[in-house]
Simulated scan of single mutants.
Amino acid sequence: MPVPELDARQIQHLSKVERDRLVRKITNAGEHFLAERFGEVEEILRPLVKKHRRIAEIQELHGLTLYRLGRWKDALEQLEYSSQLTGDIDQLPVMADCHRALGQVESVRKLWEELRMAGPEASVMTEGRIVMAGALADIGDIAGGIRLLEKGPIKTRRAREHHVRLWYALADLYERAGDHQRARRGFERIEQVEPHYADVSNRLESLS
């Protein structure tokens, strides 16, 4: 995610000194997040989320940080709160993945249905699809996960990050299902557009 920008209306009650200090801290936290220094982000945000409960950008960034730290319950609580503040659905896939990590498949399914009915932009929908498919695979329904992913935007003229993530998830499930030919084709497709993506080279080597 980009470095968050605070809504001027939410900080207009602060003095100029307080506003400038808060903006510096949030900018610093955002830069740490992009550099994947999540422990540092959490240290910066921990006192801010309590002090500025109504500033959604702070609450959301903290929730995403907790998610990246593997603190699923805390992340879920924080992201649910930030979503209530904004009415935004962009973090529903992350919330669903928290439920998945906690083994709460029905909660994943509920959020997937909510996302599907809302019809968000393609990248958000695809992330939700990947999480739901993974949850199905977790309970042994690999075929169901494959069917769900195959309904996603597999074909595209210009591959974006969410397309590559979809291809990877699908190739992974093909391999788990024993369909090594399709798995190999999927990983090869990724290698053509993102040669160093994740562990694709190793996956292809193991399938050769």
Score class of each variant (00 low, 15 high):
residue 160 R to E: 15
residue 134 G to P: 02
residue 161 E to G: 04
residue 100 R to D: 07
residue 106 E to A: 14
residue 102 L to Y: 03
residue 117 M to A: 15
residue 137 A to F: 06
residue 101 A to T: 05
residue 183 A to Q: 02
residue 114 E to N: 10
residue 116 R to L: 11
residue 139 I to L: 10
residue 120 P to H: 10
residue 138 D to E: 09
residue 146 I to W: 12
residue 133 A to H: 08
residue 163 H to M: 06
residue 150 E to K: 03
residue 157 R to W: 01
residue 141 D to E: 14
residue 167 W to N: 06
residue 109 R to Q: 13
residue 112 W to G: 03
residue 122 A to F: 02
residue 107 S to I: 02
residue 158 R to N: 13
residue 131 V to H: 04
residue 154 I to L: 15
residue 116 R to H: 14
residue 118 A to H: 08
residue 124 V to W: 05
residue 125 M to T: 03
residue 162 H to F: 10
residue 133 A to L: 00
residue 157 R to F: 05
residue 185 R to L: 13
residue 180 H to I: 12
residue 104 Q to V: 04
residue 158 R to H: 11
residue 151 K to H: 10
residue 102 L to K: 02
residue 145 G to A: 08
residue 135 A to F: 09
residue 134 G to S: 10
residue 176 R to F: 11
residue 154 I to N: 06
residue 117 M to C: 11
residue 166 L to M: 05
residue 165 R to K: 12
residue 101 A to I: 00
residue 111 L to A: 07
residue 152 G to R: 06
residue 144 G to H: 08
residue 180 H to G: 13
residue 180 H to Q: 11
residue 175 E to T: 01
residue 120 P to R: 03
residue 100 R to A: 09
residue 186 G to F: 01
residue 181 Q to M: 12
residue 160 R to S: 12
residue 120 P to K: 04
residue 141 D to V: 08
residue 149 L to A: 07
residue 110 K to I: 07
residue 117 M to Y: 13
residue 123 S to K: 12
residue 134 G to H: 05
residue 118 A to M: 02
residue 107 S to C: 07
residue 116 R to K: 15
residue 119 G to D: 11
residue 120 P to F: 04
residue 125 M to S: 09
residue 144 G to P: 12
residue 98 C to E: 01
residue 184 R to E: 15
residue 119 G to C: 01
residue 172 D to M: 08
residue 164 V to T: 07
residue 103 G to T: 03
residue 180 H to P: 09
residue 129 R to C: 04
residue 131 V to Y: 03
residue 131 V to M: 03
residue 156 T to Y: 01
residue 129 R to Q: 12
residue 175 E to H: 07
residue 177 A to M: 10
